[in-house]
Design a binder for these strands. Structure first.
Lengths: 245, 245
DNA sequence: GAGTGTGAAAAGTTTCACAGCC
DNA sequence: GGCTGTGAAACTTTTCACACTC
C-alpha cells in the first residue's frame, strides 16, 4: 500500500494500521462480500473475478476492488481472487477469528426471534445469555437457553464474557438496559428499540430501526409520485419533459 | 434556498425540487428527528432549539440545522423551532400524509414479531397482509391478520394496494418472493433475508442484515483490541503513548 | 443575547481510467 | 487478452464559522 517493497511479510503494526484506515462504508460491504464468498465456497467455486463478485454483491466492480485493496493485494492479475484466501483475509480483518458472545435483553416477540435466529451462532456469534424483566420468564428456556432476570445482567455478562449486547426491549426500558450493559463491561450494542441511546465514547452502538426504514421507503414512494404527477400537472414541464434535470 | 425573494408561498414544483435534492443520509436522520419530536409533543414541549433537538437525536447541531434547511426555513432565529410545525413538515417530506400498506412475507419467528410489532401501524404503516408458503398456516390469524398462501401474493397485494413488501423468509426463498412482489407491483421492499436481491431499477430495496451488523461490531472490537495490544507490544508506542493519533 | 440558516472549507466516498502483471 | 490495484478526479456528506434575524 504505502511502502513495503516486494512481498514483505506484513508486520502486526501494518495490519493494524491498515485496519484502522478502512472506511466505515467499506467495512459494511466487506461483511456482505464475505457472505457471498461463503456461498461460493459451498458451491465449490475456487476463483472469482471482481466483476462476478461485484455482481453477486450488488455493487460495481471498481468499488469492490477498492474495498478489497484496503485489506491487501490478494488477487492475481488476469485471473481474479482465490475464494478461500479472500474469505480468510476478510474474516481476519472483521475480527471473526475470535468468538463474540452475545446477550439478548428483552424476550418479547423480537427477542424470541433473535434467540432462535440461526444466523448468529453459525457465524461465530453464540448467544450466551438472555434477559428479561418479567420474573415469570426467569428460568424458562428460549431457543435452548434459560432466561435470566434483568437484575443479573452484570454478573452473568461478566461470567460469560459477553462482548455484544442486543437490546430488544420496549423503548422506555432501553436506556436503562443500555446503562446496565455498559456497566457490565459490554462495549458493543445492537439496538432494536426506537430510541437514541446515550453511551460513553468508547461504546460502539449500531441501531436497527424498523420505523425509520419504513419512513425512508415512504420518502421514496412520495418522491416518485410527486415526480410523476408534477411533470404533467404543474406547468413546469410539458408532455413529460423535465425542465430541471 | 436558491432564489425566492421574501416569503414567497412555495409552489408544488419548489417542494418537489427540494425533496429531490435531500441527501439520502439526511432523510434517514429526518425520520429520527421526527420520532424525537413526536415524543416532545407528548411532553407538551412547544419549542426546541437545534442544540436540544440535536442532543436528543444524537447528532451535532450543525448537522441538524443543515438537515432541516433541506426541507425549508421553519425556525425562528434567537428562539428555535416550533415542535408541531417541524413535525408536520417532516411528515410531509417523508410522505407520511398517505398510508402505506405493508405485506409481510414469511411468518416464522421474525415474521411473527413483525406482524405483532406495534411500531408499524401506529406510524402510518398498517400491516395489510401476511404470506407464508406453509399451507398449514393459511388462514391462521397472526397478530389479528389471517395468513395467505404465498401463491396469492399478486392478487392480494393488488387488491389491498400494498406499497411496501417485507421479506422475512429464509434466504433461499427470498429472491423468488421478491420477484413475485415486484410483479405484483410492489415498488419498495424491506429485506431481512441475508441475500442480495436483484431488482429492476425502479424498485427501492432496503436491507436489514443482522449478521452484517454483528460483524461490523466485531470489526470495532478487533480494532480496539489491536490498538490496545499494539501500543504496548509492538515497539510502536511505549507506556501508553499513541504515536500515530 | 440567543439561535437559525447557509456559503465555503474539509473530510469521506465513489467512480474513472489505465499502468502493470499474469 | 484479461483482470487487478490504485492514483487522481468527481461527487457526496459533514463540519465550520459567521451574517443575519428575532
Amino acid at each position: 500500500m504505502t511502502s513495503p517493497k516486494a512481498t514483505a511479510p506484513e508486520t502486526t503494526a501494518e495490519v493494524r494500521e491498515r485496519a484502522r484506515a478502512i472506511p466505515e462504508a467499506a467495512v459494511a460491504r466487506l461483511a456482505v462480500y464475505l457472505r457471498v464468498l461463503s456461498g461460493m465456497v459451498e458451491q465449490q467455486v475456487t476463483t472469482i473475478s471482481s466483476e462476478e463478485l461485484a455482481g453477486a454483491a450488488g455493487v460495481n466492480s471498481a468499488k469492490l476492488r477498492k474495498d478489497l485493496s484496503y485489506i491487501g493485494s490478494y488477487g492475481t492479475r488476469g485471473v481474479g481472487y482465490d475464494v478461500e484466501v479472500l474469505v480468510s483475509h476478510i474474516e481476519r480483518i472483521l475480527g471473526l477469528t475470535r468468538k463474540h458472545s452475545v446477550a439478548v435483553v428483552g424476550i418479547g416477540n423480537l427477542g424470541h426471534a433473535l434467540a432462535n435466529y440461526g444466523g448468529f451462532p453459525s457465524r461465530g456469534f453464540p448467544v450466551a445469555a438472555l434477559f428479561d424483566i418479567d420474573p415469570d420468564l426467569t428460568g424458562v428456556p428460549v431457543g435452548g437457553i434459560p432466561v435470566h432476570h434483568i437484575d443479573d445482567i452484570t454478573s452473568v455478562c461478566a461470567e460469560r464474557e459477553v462482548s455484544i449486547g442486543v437490546i430488544a426491549t420496549p423503548p422506555q426500558a432501553a436506556q436503562a438496559v443500555c446503562d446496565r450493559l455498559v456497566s457490565a463491561g459490554v462495549q458493543c450494542i445492537l439496538n432494536f428499540a426506537p430510541v437514541v441511546l446515550q453511551v460513553p465514547d468508547y461504546v460502539e452502538v449500531r441501531k436497527v430501526d424498523l420505523a425509520v426504514e419504513m419512513q425512508i421507503l415512504s420518502f421514496h414512494v412520495a418522491r416518485r409520485a410527486d415526480e410523476a404527477a408534477g411533470d404533467v400537472v404543474n406547468g413546469v414541464g410539458v408532455d413529460g419533459v423535465v425542465i430541471r434535470p
